[in-house]
Simulated scan of single mutants.
Amino acid sequence: MPRIEAWLMDDCTDDQRLPHKLQPNQPVTLEGLQEIGVFYLKLNADIYENDPELQKICEDRGYTYMDIITIHPDKLPNYEDKLKMFYEEHLHVDDEIRYILEGRAYFDVRDKNDRWIRIAMTKGDLITLPAGIYHRFTLDETNYTKAMRLFAGEPVWKAYNRPADDFEVRQKYLNQLR
């Protein structure tokens, strides 16, 4: 069974790179993530360039475009601005697929009760966030991750900041939760 660490977040607005676990911690299981449409898989990131399992996932899910982004102050132009932008609560009209090749990061997603769930991502973690789910992204205290971005078709980079509840994709997502 794949393992991922996820938990309900506290309301603290201090450094976004900190874990922000409730006290006591309230873990969220893989099944809990699946209930809100989050797909997770652990792969061998050491062989990502020729991984037959990754190739099969891409074929099965129609992922035809991929690129790699390194997020670090020395590697990403306008690092501080980009990190702020990634951390704005938003949704996309397509699924968001990320595969962590090196380093660590967090994805935060909203649960059915609009509470934040923080998902700790490490090397080998592949995650798919469904179109229409509110989410955000940040690094942890290491300030480094290298991630593959996967898309079905041409890449779509447009994020729609909350509120976007009137978007058709948001309504479709909410209907799937019911």
Rank of each mutant, 00 (worst) to 15 (best):
M85D: 10
G37M: 06
H92L: 06
M66W: 09
D74T: 15
D111R: 02
V109W: 00
Q171T: 11
D51H: 13
F107G: 06
K158G: 02
D108L: 00
K123R: 11
D111P: 02
P52H: 01
I127A: 07
N78C: 09
I133H: 05
L174Q: 12
P163K: 01
L33Q: 03
D51R: 10
A105Y: 01
P2E: 12
N143S: 12
V109S: 04
L126Y: 00
L150N: 04
I4P: 11
I119G: 07
A131P: 14
G132T: 00
H92P: 03
D108W: 06
K172D: 13
E96A: 07
Y79C: 05
Y99G: 04
L126K: 04
R110F: 06
T138W: 00
L41Q: 15
H135M: 05
T145V: 12
C12R: 08
E141W: 03
Q176C: 15
E168P: 07
E102H: 03
L33V: 04
C58M: 15
A147G: 09
L91F: 02
M85G: 10
D166S: 15
M1G: 15
D67P: 10
R115S: 13
G32E: 09
P77K: 05
I47Y: 05
P130Y: 00
Q171F: 09
D81K: 11
Q26H: 10
P24I: 12
D165C: 12
A152K: 11
L174A: 12
D74R: 13
K172M: 11
P2T: 11
H135R: 08
